Amino acid sequence: MARQTVYLDHNAASPLRPEARAALLDALEFAGNPSSVHGHGRALRNVIETGRQKVARLCGAETRQVVFTGSATEAITQAITGGVKALSASAIAISAGEHAAAAKAAEATGLPIWTVGLDSDGRIDLDQLAAVLARADAESVTLLVAVHWVNNETGVIQPIERINAMVGPTRHTLFIDAVQALGKLPLDFAASAPDMMAVSGHKIGAPSGIGALLVKAHADTVRLIPGGGQEQGRRGGTESAALIAAFGAAAEACTYDMGRLAEITSRLETGIRALAADAVIFGQGANRTGNVTNFAVPGLGNATAMMALDLMGLSVSSGSACSSGKVGASHVLAAMGVPKDLANCALRVSFGWNSTMGDAEAFLVGLENLLSRQRRDGKAA
């Protein structure tokens, strides 16, 4: 197996930051349980609360609004399945482009699901959202509205301010999946409309296994895991001080260097178009984060392409890491109206904190080799 030399899948998980590694190892030296009242326990509690402050700062949240979870999926599930019970929702409104974690959590509630579509560039259809809200009011239905801020497959930034303005003043609950927005866009949870928001550590260079749900005071009864009163009674189970410390360190080290990443992405997309004039870049008409390109070259199947690129030492994906290994086209691209045969050619290249222009150049060399081979084989056939 070829040694992986160029990592181009930051939207799945970003490599561990040195600061996070150091904080993780330091915290592992502490003995005890953070819920214990003796000195060892208090020392661990201090590690956790320091990490909470750092994560809160990056999220624009109050420290007490941060509930640590074992992953973003857990945070999303707590918000949706716990939220409908605690906040008496009778239906869920969810966009057609949501991550599987949100879609599956919505299904698990057993409540009616009202789906809001996407336009051809992957933006949430605000007219449909308005119609859903009007229908709910007409039918006296209380909604939990669950939408993502940034799409994990395309990098499309949703019109979150308009969504906030539409849902925030209503009697309905608004939950935002901000997993792909953290570290890329300024978050101001405390002063914004959402009642709850989910974030994840491994998207910004913390280890996997740590996420957080941000919760406003009026939604503080949302629960998923009962237990011994940890996280102010909002999520049972002994906290991992080491993972929380690493999350906090990654949050503290996180800078909004999206301008630099946008330059790398721009070079990538220019190079893709030069190599394949018929290449399609999904969501190119929308506002995107600038660190990800989801594209397709007609006739170049993504399963074959990913294997070939992997052998060249280039790690890319075909979309969500939670579904890339499964048969079937992306539900996000399907919601955008992309034909299935083209969606089955989709490749996602995403950059992060340690990406360089050389990474983009390396991918373009690999893509050129792949396309040359495809054309050569096509002529031979």
Rank of each mutant, 00 (worst) to 15 (best):
A91P: 01
K379G: 00
A106Y: 03
S208L: 12
L8Y: 04
I48A: 10
I160C: 05
L275A: 12
L364N: 13
I124Y: 00
Q284S: 15
L364T: 08
P159R: 14
E29G: 12
A191E: 04
A296L: 09
M258F: 10
S330C: 14
S35A: 15
L371N: 04
V66S: 02
I94A: 08
G319P: 10
A72V: 02
T73G: 09
R260Q: 14
V66H: 09
G378I: 00
L126N: 01
V215D: 04
A242D: 14
S36K: 00
G41W: 09
R171L: 05
S372K: 09
R234Y: 07
W114S: 06
Q232V: 08
D310I: 01
L129E: 01
T265L: 05
I80M: 03
A86E: 06
A91R: 04
P186C: 01
L118M: 03
H148S: 06
P194I: 04
G32F: 04
I272H: 10
L144D: 09
H99N: 10
Q180Y: 02
M166G: 01
V316N: 05
A12K: 11
H172A: 02
D195H: 15
G366F: 02
A93T: 12
R57N: 07
N151D: 15
N344R: 10
G110I: 12
A31V: 05
A56C: 03
I204M: 12
A43L: 09
L268Q: 15
T221M: 06
R42T: 07
P159D: 13
S36C: 00
I160A: 01
G313C: 10
L268R: 05
V332G: 08
S318I: 02
T265H: 07
R260N: 07
L261N: 12
I264P: 05
S372V: 06
S324R: 09
T170M: 02
V150M: 04
I48M: 07
K326G: 00
S200R: 12
D26K: 11
G301H: 14
E231V: 08
Q65V: 00
T115A: 10
V222I: 15
S90H: 04
D220E: 15
T265K: 12
A305L: 04
R52T: 02
A138V: 04
S266E: 11
T356G: 01
P18A: 03
A2H: 03
D127C: 03
N164G: 08
R273M: 10
R171S: 05
V332W: 03
R52W: 04
Q65L: 01
A86D: 02
T238H: 03
A279S: 14
G183I: 05
T289E: 06
W149L: 06
L364E: 11
A100E: 15
S266C: 14
G227P: 12
H10D: 14
V199S: 13
V167L: 03
T115R: 15
V292G: 10
K54M: 07
V156M: 02
G209K: 10
G283P: 06
I176D: 09
E231S: 13
P18C: 10
N11R: 12
K379V: 07
S318A: 14
